[in-house]
Design a protein around this nucleic acid. Structure first.
Lengths: 195, 195
DNA sequence: ATAATTTTGTACTGTTTGTTACAAAATCGA
DNA sequence: TCGATTTTGTAACAAACAGTACAAAATTAT
C-alpha cells in the first residue's frame, strides 16, 4: 500500500457533510463550485483532486444523507415502544425534531423532484431509500397487527403503502407551507387511519 | 386604448404553455433562456419584450399550470359519482391518465422542492394550490360522510388532511419510481383508510 | 405618404459556469 | 538529503449564462 505524498488537510466525511448542506439548501444546479469551495473550506485544486467533479461530490453527499437518514429512521421503527408510537415518532421526526430538515424538506425527495428524470444516480438512491423504508414500515405494521394495535382486517402491504405515502406527502407539504396545524392534522389523521 | 405598432406574431398562452413544458422537464435552474427561445419559437428580443425576464416567465408558467390543474382536479371532485369514486379518480388522475404528468410529477411540487425556500412566488403558488385542494377534498369528504360512504366517526378535517398527504406523497413516489404496483397499493390503501 | 409605435432578429455585453494546468509545498522511502 | 509522490492554491480556460442595444420590419393614425 503506497503511503508517500503530501497528506490531506481534511477529513472526507466533514467535507461531504459541508457539501451536503450546500446542495440541500440550494439544490444541485443553483449551487456553484465556488459555493462548494467556500462552504467546505477547500480550494478548487483539493476539491477536484479528491472528488473529481461537482456531480461526483453530489452523489457522495446524497449517499451520505441516505445512509445517515435511513439509520435514524430504522432506529425509530425498531424501538421497543408500542408500534403506533413508533409510527407517530417517525412522522414527527423530520417535522419537529430534526431542525436541519424541517424547513428544507428531505434532500432525497428534493433531489428526485429536481433531477430525478435526468440523473440515474438520483433515481437509484431515491428508489433504494424508499424501498428500505417501505420494508421497515411493513414489518412494524405487521408487528402492530399481531399485537392487536393495528387493524388485522386490512392488508399489511396496503397499510404500509398508505402510511409511506402519507409520510412522503407530509415531508413535502410541511416544508412547503410551514403550517403546523395542517401537519398536526396529517399526523393525527394518518395514525387514526391505522385504526 | 392604443392600437398602433407591429402586431405580435404569437399568442401569449401558447408561449407560456411551451415555456411550462421546458420548466417542467428541466427545472428552473437547469433550463437556459436559449432553451426557452428554442421551445417557444421566439427570439430573445420578443421573449424579453413580452415577458421581461426568465423568472417572470417562470411565474406565468407556474400560475398557468396552477389554474389549469386546479380546474381539472376540482372538476373531478365536483363529479356526480359517489364520493369515493371521485377520490379514486383524483388519485388516479395524474398517475394513469395525465400522460404529461406521470413521469415528471407535479410542476408545483417540483418547483417547491427546487426553489420553495428562496422564491416567494413559488411559495405563494404552492400554498394557494394546496389550500384550494384541501378545501375541496374536505367538502367532498363531508358529503361522503353525510351519504354514509365515509366514516362519520372521524373528523372531516383530519380525514381530508390525511387524504391530501397521501395524494401528495403519491405524486412524489410514483414519478420517482414509476412503480405501478406500489402506486396501486397506495391508492387502494388510501381509499380503504376512509372506511 | 409619413410619423408614431411596437415587435422582431441579431449581435453583443459582462459575468459566471465547471473544469484544467501547473508550480509550490509537504510528506515518505531510500 | 534526495527523488518520488501526493496535495494545495492560484491562475487560467473556453463555454454558457441572463440580459441589453438597436436597427430593420410591420403595423395604425393622420
Amino acid at each position: 500500500m503506497s503511503k508517500s505524498g503530501r497528506p490531506r488537510e481534511f477529513k472526507d466525511t466533514t467535507v461531504i457533510d459541508a457539501a451536503m448542506e450546500v446542495f440541500w439548501s440550494q439544490g444541485y444546479e443553483a449551487c456553484s463550485t465556488d459555493d462548494l469551495c467556500k462552504e467546505t473550506g477547500l480550494g478548487r485544486g483539493s476539491l477536484y483532486n479528491a472528488f473529481g467533479s461537482k456531480h461526483e461530490l453530489y452523489e457522495q453527499a446524497l449517499i451520505r444523507y441516505h445512509q445517515v437518514g435511513i439509520e435514524a429512521q430504522l432506529d425509530i421503527l425498531h424501538n421497543d415502544a408500542p408500534v403506533k408510537e413508533r409510527l407517530r415518532e417517525l412522522l414527527e421526526w423530520e417535522i419537529w425534531k430534526n431542525s436541519a430538515a424541517k424547513d428544507r424538506g428531505c434532500l432525497i425527495i428534493n433531489a428526485s423532484a429536481e433531477r430525478g428524470k435526468s440523473d440515474p444516480a438520483v433515481e437509484k438512491i431515491f428508489k433504494q431509500h424508499l424501498a428500505l423504508l417501505e420494508q421497515a414500515i411493513e414489518d412494524a405494521i405487521r408487528e402492530g397487527q399481531s399485537a392487536g394495535e393495528i387493524s388485522r382486517e386490512r392488508e399489511t402491504s396496503e397499510l404500509a403503502a398508505m402510511f409511506l405515502s402519507c409520510y412522503y406527502g407530509l415531508r413535502v407539504i410541511y416544508p412547503g407551507t410551514m403550517n403546523r396545524a395542517l401537519a398536526r392534522r396529517i399526523i393525527d389523521g394518518t395514525l387514526a387511519a391505522m385504526l
